[in-house]
Amino acid sequence: DTWRYAFEEAMEEVQGKYAQKFKEEVEANSDHEVQLFPFGTLGESADIMEQAQSGILQFVDQSPGFTGALIPEAQVFFVPYLLPADQDQLVSFFRNSKAIHELFPPLYAEQGLELLTMFPEGEVMMTTTEAVASPEDLNEVKFRVMTNPLLVESYKAFGATPTPLPWGEVYGALQTGIIQGQENPAFFIESTKMYEVTDHLTRAGHNNFTTAVMANKEFFDGLSDEDKTVIQNATAAAFDYIIEYQTGLTEESVEKIQAAKPEMTVTTLTEEQRAPFKATAEAVEAKFLEIGGSQAQAILDQMKADLAAAAGG
């Protein structure tokens, strides 16, 4: 059969790399063909998600931030300083988390989706027109964020003026000065050229961009055990591949940015500098519990337990 798989990024970005590996694995181990549809070719994030729900697409990659409109609990990934900055701990968490492997799947199933995996895409960094070392530096800074209540809350807590803007207008708005900052993983800042219109890159370590791959549930449940195994193996192989691929990707992207624009400053905030940012996390957590749906508390508690385990192991 031909299986169709859509994702939110371009072919050579992280989600695209994952999808290419998944396709390769499925096609090598079965007679099925996987067609890939990158960002925008079948609509925006919400559109491809609906198409996966209605069964037009067999697979979709959507980040929990967007899924939050459908499954409010998924927004937990926007609580700042929840995920560890340490890469090994992060990987261990994604591999073993009970929240991801046991609590989230039933929530996705309610929406007609089989949650296959979640994986990190890289540390989220800020790029701004003025240097940032403390929340005071974000004062009055109009900062573009995705329209998500928790991100808005986070940047309000950081002291910025969170400003929603459609993605297509961000580059122009940074260039003319309507906004003075935005945040994204390093590879995305590099590929979308956000560094061309900002001067300072700041690593506050507040988050790691997470994404999720799912299948249409009816399609998945209707598969033979053999096909299910093919998909599960491909999912696992692509997960290993993407973790490997990301080793050094962040640093590589930062180096590319500096090579393309030597005057760009790159600042990693010290623990001391991060403290006032971290202090705001509690307010965002409270907001998450308020809008995160009926399972919010259970998910948050389990996440914290999983993270403690990852830090200990």
Binding site: A46, A69, L70
Partner: peptide, 17 residues
């Protein structure tokens, strides 16, 4: 009807889409 069933919210307004 499908959208009603899915219960998707508008992220900023937090009302059903």
């Amino acid at each position: 009807m499908a959208q009603m069933g899915r219960g998707r919210l508008l992220p900023a307004l937090q009302i059903p889409q």
